[in-house]
């Protein structure tokens, strides 16, 4: 660590901050979206408990689609860390 010059230190700091920001901000959207999906699925299940199986599968599918922007930011974070 001691023989690290300033340029490399700044480079590493930029990488770490960039990856952290990409992942942290990118996780907000999917969090809100999946929360909405879960809440409404719970509502629907409370109203019609006999539909529980069908609602659960559709909820998981919708979760997977809502999650995709979070997955993109995970990809970008990995790219920043490993490929930049």
């Amino acid at each position: 660590m001691e023989n690290m010059d300033l340029a490399r230190a700044i480079y590493l700091a930029g990488k770490a901050i960039g990856a952290g920001l990409a992942m942290g901000i990118g996780a907000i959207g999917p969090g809100v979206g999946e929360g909405n999906i879960g809440a409404h699925a719970m509502d629907a299940m409370a109203r019609q408990p006999e539909m529980m199986g069908a609602i659960t599968t559709r909820m998981l599918l919708a979760d997977a689609v809502a999650e995709s922007t979070g997955i993109y930011s995970l990809l970008i974070a990995f790219l920043i860390i490993f490929a930049l």
Partner: peptide
């Protein structure tokens, strides 16, 4: 990218 990100990530 959705599939790639999920599996590779």
């Amino acid at each position: 990218l959705r599939l790639f990100g999920n599996i590779a990530g």
